[in-house]
Design a protein around this nucleic acid. Structure first.
Lengths: 139, 139
DNA sequence: AGAAATTTGTCCGTATGTATC
DNA sequence: AGATACATACGGACAAATTTC
């Protein structure tokens, strides 16, 4: 009863079933999907499993979920990214802009070390962090 | 390709990466950490492993987890009243330069949120951190 | 305007089965 | 055999946004 996952996992089976309903037009674009609790009852799966199924559809941009409202079939088409993750780190030397120069009490154009960290989440860049410091030896 | 763990266990690697983001200011004090599921996706690790990583940060008092809310970076304990230390934090909106625009896949000039943290050590500025993110509104 | 109900978001703890080092 | 890690699944609880009464 607890957790056999022979062949296909349950959340995928559920996702596929909902996908069929969307692609067949049974649930048209813009329409509301059954609630998580309704799907839980229908498929006799836990809420977590149902949510996993919906997350799969969301990954495929097939549906859009709104907090406190529900999950809707995506109305229009979009162009999408891919996959991926991780962060990239690069280091370089840059000239101090007026603001940085003022902060560090140096002349505009003074060489600073800039470290840049790019964080990606699900394919797209979420955060860029730039850290500036004086070159070692300057002070 | 499932489970090699050379040298360091996976959860420790993940914890270290998150720690870096916190210490670099990418995730400032008081801010919400990505959810367990977001971290699961980003690091391609299982939920158990991600939770183990967060637990490690919690042990170090670096983050605080609240049931049903999320995990937050531990806020700094106040700044004394007087001279010096501590950092200045400012937030503003800036136009994306060509490099940032490319990273975020937006047009040059698109509005970004910039957070700047200035750290002072013994009176003078030691580090300036600038964090760039898209306006809360899309992607 | 306010309270209650709905619905999604997130976290907690636990469990089973598989695979690798 | 044991530690680590993955994927899956369950049930419960609290939080927050939205809708309904």
């Amino acid at each position: 009863m607890p957790t056999p996952h022979y062949g296909q996992p349950r959340y995928r089976t559920i996702a596929d079933e909902i996908r069929k309903r969307i692609e067949s037009g049974a649930i048209p674009p813009g329409a509301l999907l059954p609630t998580e609790s309704a799907l839980t009852a229908e498929f006799r799966a836990s809420r977590g499993t149902v949510r996993q199924a919906i997350a799969a559809l969301r990954d495929d941009r097939l549906v859009i979920t709104e907090h406190g409202r529900g999950t809707f079939v995506t109305p229009l088409r979009y162009e999408g990214g891919s996959a991926g993750s991780a962060g990239t780190e690069t280091q370089r030397q840059v000239a101090a802009d007026p603001e940085l120069a003022a902060l560090f009490s140096v002349k505009v154009g003074t060489t600073l070390v800039e470290q840049q960290r790019v964080t990606r989440a699900s394919g797209s860049v979420s955060t860029v962090v730039r850290t500036y410091q004086l070159l070692r030896g300057q002070q």
